[in-house]
Design a protein around this nucleic acid. Sequence first.
DNA 1: CGCAGCCATGCTTTTAAGGCATGATGGATT
DNA 2: AATCCATCATGCCTTAAAAGCATGGCTGCG
Lengths: 314, 314
Amino acid sequence: MELRHLRYFTAVAEALNFTKAAARLNIAQPALSRQVQDLEDEIGVDLLKRSPRGVTLTAEGKLFFQEAKDTLKHVEEAVMRVRALARGEFGELQIGYAPSPTLEILPAALSAFREIAPAVKVVLHDLAGDELTAGLHDGTLELAVMIQPSDESAAGLEFEELRRYPLYVAMAMGHPLAKLKTITVERVATEPLVALRRLDYSEYYRILDGIFAPSGLRPRIAVECDGVSSLITEIEIGKGVGLVSEVFQRAAGKRLVYRRLANCNEFHRVGIARSKKGDVTPAAERFCEILRKVSTSGSSKAVTAKNRPSSKPG
Amino acid sequence: MELRHLRYFTAVAEALNFTKAAARLNIAQPALSRQVQDLEDEIGVDLLKRSPRGVTLTAEGKLFFQEAKDTLKHVEEAVMRVRALARGEFGELQIGYAPSPTLEILPAALSAFREIAPAVKVVLHDLAGDELTAGLHDGTLELAVMIQPSDESAAGLEFEELRRYPLYVAMAMGHPLAKLKTITVERVATEPLVALRRLDYSEYYRILDGIFAPSGLRPRIAVECDGVSSLITEIEIGKGVGLVSEVFQRAAGKRLVYRRLANCNEFHRVGIARSKKGDVTPAAERFCEILRKVSTSGSSKAVTAKNRPSSKPG
DNA sequence: CGCAGCCATGCTTTTAAGGCATGATGGATT
DNA sequence: AATCCATCATGCCTTAAAAGCATGGCTGCG
């Protein structure tokens, strides 16, 4: 049995006349006649009562007519749904992110995305840097908004920078270095450093390397934290200073003091990471477009010093 | 799109491998490959991600896989339902009947039928004689259990006699004729007669004709009733006597007195009436078989005089 | 680096749907 | 009662498309 049989039968059941139904289907009447016969043979039940004045439906025919209509409708709707899904009009979008570096971008993007694609369920995954790259590789995540991953873990990934933030030294209130307006790399190298865990944040160490190696220095890592909130706490209680990006201040609030890191060319590069293979769904593509838009126009205003006096550094 | 495409796609989606799916479908792999491609082309969405290690489903593919399975299942179940309906395992059975003449047959048949075909909904239509024949003609009724219809209205109908009942004269308590043991046709002709309406009960007049015409007599019809209950009431209040069948007594109870109509060859012939055209459904056929069985064995006991002393006529 | 497994493509064969002409049927018409 | 007409079925042929076969290309694995 094929859908053709259902289409033909429903046409006949609606027209109650083979000739008219055939005309409506743009086929010859004998062809239609035969297909319906084949259908009845296959089911083994007479669906129609033929007469020289047309046809009538048997009780079985009435039942099958309804079933056939339902089936055809279901198929049609299934196709519509699949196409809508392909257009990114609904479905799920798995997004990984690093919370604090994306603070200026992601919330704005999410609310903008919800407006243009309300039926898409965005599933956010707050993960460490290396967990993000792993998720992108194994397909768990479609995209991640994060700090540019280090080269090793970035193999097979593509990264699109959205923003870059200069680095700041974070320290506890009343820390001696707070008296300085800016702090040099050399000075930081003498201080114990509160860092993130190498295991989960390999790209953080790439950045540290980029900061200290050019001066032939090595940071003194006092403690490795498993996340940003621990980092804040460790700095706050005086375990050492931290190296963070400008935007970090918004996450940490006023619990710490921040000073610009001088003579340093490294930045926190925040952007979109995606797998090179693994095609991008339309929903993800639309989300990326919004991210780009938000990064350049909208909230860039919000990060300028003039518009954020309260959290303005130094 | 045809069901073939759905079958093929689901096979691939289950096997996640064209080659294995093709083997399971007993077709060659390239044929399968092309059919699935055609499906994807028609929908305009990639459902599968091909790789040299097999295939994986895209998000759209997963959705369509579920939809396709549902569709195929629905079609299969639809066929099963239609076949079950054709076997008379469920559905509706429109049966017309004349209440009082069928009192010995129909209730027993209905309960027996309910046991063998519990899913068949028997719809009973209590109608006048001519309404029954009309219903059989226009297909509203599949069969009727009734008194044999007169020749005019029986055109195109077939009648199968189940029982025949001798005629009795019904009269009010204390009616002068009650003193007689039997009553002759000639005597009845002198009494005012309570009859049924000619409009609805033409076969009743055929019977009257059969009773009186051979003796060259005509009944004196005092009143025409629209149904049996009116008939009883009219007789009870003394408008006249009635001509009824033996079994009628069970319907009328003891409100009236009954005396055998002597020298009369007419009977109430009760049986199954069906349209000659208009094929009989299996459910109807099974019901007829039960009617025959009930008429000969089971309840025939109940009508013998010995077993019904309470309603045994004078 | 070659092998193995898998899917796609090109071409041919086979199946079946479609079309045309015609036959059969039965109610409606005169 | 005979005829007519609309309607559906049947036989034969054409056409479209599905299936098969052989082959090529890709990718991951040993």
